[in-house]
């Protein structure tokens, strides 16, 4: 589904990604872990198409297409979804209208008929249950005055509505209490299928108690330095990132 080869990117003059290789197949959940500043969020942003980052090398194939050549909106319509670490507050834009527009833009792109009001409402009600989100939240302006947990739940709700093929969760667990974490994870687990895939970017192992990954990768200084199964996450949690750093230094010596 997604094949990243030797991806390099920088912001202004600072190189952040220094050659990432990663392949994700349908039905898989991959976790990217790593200390602060290792490039986790940069990878998520580059994949979603944020223009602040300049890709300086490598390639990304998404469902047989060159992802890096696509605009952010086309990536989304092709089935890529980024759950933002910091969802943006947009006063004056109703959450419901926004989601309806997004859903129908995607349908149009895929050559499907737009959902009418009744169909949309029905889908919305179903998905709302999934992430335990309240109607009153959706009638407000997009993320305006939402708590941290509400913003993250709204991200997962949008994901549920847009039914992406690949969802990237950028530190979705940050700032969440345990109940919100459980709700978010529960939403992800219910949306999981053999046809879609998830890339979970996180600093801590705790989210992975709820969203169990097939593969765990450790990102450090812009490179994936370790890959393994979910046990790697547990080892990291136990020993901390210093253990990886120490091991790496041993190797280079």
């Amino acid at each position: 589904m997604l094949k990243i080869e030797n991806l390099q990117a920088r912001i202004e003059e600072k190189e952040i990604l220094k050659g990432i290789n990663l392949e994700i197949k349908p039905g898989e959940i991959h976790a990217i872990m790593g200390p602060n500043g290792s490039g986790k969020s940069t990878l998520a942003s580059v994949l979603a198409g944020r223009e602040d980052y300049e890709v300086t090398g490598g390639s990304v194939d998404f469902l047989g297409k060159d992802l890096l050549e696509m605009s952010p909106e086309d990536r989304a319509k092709e089935g890529l979804f980024l759950a933002f670490q910091y969802p943006v507050e947009i006063p004056g834009v109703s959450t419901t209208n926004f989601i309806k527009t997004a859903v129908n833009e995607k349908r149009k792109y895929l050559g499907q008929e737009p959902l009418d009001a009744a169909q949309f409402l029905k889908t919305m009600k179903e998905k709302m249950k999934l992430v335990e989100i309240d109607q009153s939240l959706l009638s407000r302006s997009l993320n305006e005055g939402f708590s941290g947990g509400e913003k993250k739940r709204n991200e997962i709700f949008q994901m549920a509505m847009l039914e992406p093929k690949l969802a990237i969760l950028d530190e979705t667990d940050s700032g969440l209490d345990i109940d919100a974490l459980r709700i978010v994870a529960n939403g992800v687990n219910q949306l999981r299928s053999k046809d879609n895939a998830f890339l979970v970017v996180t600093h801590y192992q705790r989210l992975l108690d709820y969203i169990v990954p097939d593969f765990v990768h450790v990102l450090y200084k812009g490179r994936i330095v370790r890959s393994g199964t979910k046990e790697l996450a547990l080892e990291l949690e136990e020993k901390g990132y210093d253990f990886i750093k120490a091991e790496l230094e041993k190797e280079t010596v």
């Binding site: 605009s71 952010p72 947009i90 926004f98 989601i99 949008q158 847009l162």
Partner: peptide, 8 residues
């Protein structure tokens, strides 16, 4: 960017 990342 947030809006574009949703396909708008």
């Amino acid at each position: 960017f947030y809006l574009k990342a949703r396909g708008i």
